[in-house]
Design a protein around this nucleic acid. Structure first.
Lengths: 190, 190, 190, 190
DNA sequence: GATGAATGAGAATTCATTCAT
DNA sequence: CATGAATGAATTCTCATTCAT
């Protein structure tokens, strides 16, 4: 009995996901350039040729992974946020951010490893801004409410702090005292 | 008549420097893997072959650049530091760090772009630690003196903050308000 | 529809054999160092890249060819030999040796051309010894039985004689009177 | 005081000899293709450029070495030989041949390593024949005198034997029992 | 759809040779 | 004459991508 259309779709979907997951792993571990399609195909248990059935090119594979990674981070920002963040919400936002980071450490490694290459990052600039902008806005609002004189600058600084912690953690996830640092950050900021 | 030893030394020194400068630029702009020896040679105005007269391999070229970059950063740390940092010294250290960063922005781009690749970074881990360790020590001392309960954690957090600012600045040197952020950091920390 | 495992095996086997055959020819004609992968690929009618689908490196290609060549020579030695060689067996051994040499002239050319390079030959020393040792043993036994005072030395001398004939024949296969010389050798030795 | 013409000539001659000696050593040890001009220049203590002052090309250097090597072997053959070789003269010829071989082992290694490459050997074919021909003639004469039915074939066989001994010795000069083998050869032949 | 053999452009590297000094 | 910096063609090898089956 031939497979139904539905079954085929599920197979396709699962396999595509498997390829993306594997590619992310390999990209994160070796860097985008050093990772080869062969390596990914073998690790994902599919043929090289099949990769091109699902993705137009290595660059497309990278693009899809990065775009989806960004998309997954978007809902993190409170959609009901009315611009007036309470302390509790602020703390929650930070906690969530680092929870996601731990969970999606490979995404972060990939982003960090590519951010210095304008030729690559330009492709994702707009999308990344979609994630960063609301963050900045929330931080600005928060510091404004707290009566800060330079809320934008404070927001930028906090952004840098969170990036820095993420970078250090991504560089050395095994020994970095992420949770303790995050606690300290919250203490300082609220 | 052959050139004098002195002439040769000058030629060699100049050429080698020219190659290193160009390579750093290209590495920083495209990433180590994506940058090709051809690209660097062309930009430096020398033949591909000559590159190998001065450096054993692409990896050796990278290594030399990174090592020298680190060496240039070492003297930044006050060698007479007795472990008791005054506010003024602390501020000076931060100022110096960012002054160097602006001046050596390409080094930072290169470091940041390579840090997620363990296979590369392990080669420089020891040397990098030579730079980072005194920083951490100074920060710890400083926060201890200030009566902090968790001086180590605070030092780690400040390290992350500085890294984050550097990363953001390196990502977008043209529009990042580095000076203002640094001012704010100093305000907050002292 | 993908090819069956069987089809693939046949393709791989055939192609690999074609490459080995061509490479042996080219190595034997130009010498290992002077023969280029391009040259072999073109002559074999495949792309350069494909060479590396079948052999890890030029050295691996050489190694495979030499090892297989040696393996083909091993069965030549009478496996039932009980150490007591009759005249007839001795003559047969010599005949066989030169029959193989004529058939596998390119192998011999390759071996002779590489034997003066210790860096290469060391890789095959053990394997070559597997071929040479039984020969020597048989010769020693034979001369012992004949009542020779210095059977080992006679064996070494005969070995040199056979090598020399092979070398001269390989050097000039078109005009060397191999068969006549072999006849004379047999006459002298038995 | 400037050097006299004569002194200059001597310097030139000595240096040229030094280069040839070194090149022979390096060629014999690594093989012609694998030996580089740089390697030879450094080992000879001269600059790369100077090499081309004395030899037109790497091939010319090889050619000169091989030609001179052959020339040195020519006088070995008894110039007064009237075609009637006594046993004593025959034995002396063989002794001399192997004495030269021991002394000039590097020449032999070089010849043996190149003989399978027609593109190289054709350049020296005529010259080599000048050496080989009188040998063959002498051997033929000798065996004729001894009443052999096939003196030419015997001469060819003896030639092969001597070549084979040389080849084996050159392959492994440290452990090959050259002297004993030579003694045995003389015993058998006279 | 699925496979992996096959391609070819391009990368790093080597080295004989040239030439300004 | 002498030097070694400089060149460029050739070499080995890699890998994203294509395509016959």
């Amino acid at each position: 009995m031939p497979r139904t259309e539905e079954q085929l779709n599920k197979i396709r979907k699962d396999r595509k996901q498997k390829i993306k997951d594997t590619a992310l792993e390999v990209f994160a571990a070796h860097g985008y350039e050093s990772a080869s399609i062969s390596m990914i195909a073998k690790k994902a248990g599919v043929s090289k040729g099949l990769m091109y059935n699902y993705f137009e090119s290595k660059e497309d594979l990278l693009g899809t992974i990065m775009m989806e990674g960004i998309d997954e981070m978007l809902p993190l920002i409170d959609p009901d946020n009315d611009g007036v963040l309470t302390k509790e919400e602020f703390v929650f936002l930070i906690d969530e951010s680092f929870r996601i980071m731990k969970e999606k450490i490979n995404y972060y490694r990939l982003y960090f490893s590519l951010m210095m290459q304008p030729s690559v990052m330009n492709l994702f600039a707009d999308k990344l801004n979609e994630v960063a902008a609301p963050y900045i806005k929330i931080f600005v609002d928060y510091f404004e409410k707290k009566g800060s004189k330079k809320p934008m600058l404070e927001a930028i600084m906090v952004g840098a702090l969170l990036d820095g912690i993420g970078f250090n953690y991504a560089f050395n996830p095994d020994t970095y005292p992420l949770d303790d640092v995050v606690e300290l950050v919250k203490e300082k900021l609220v």
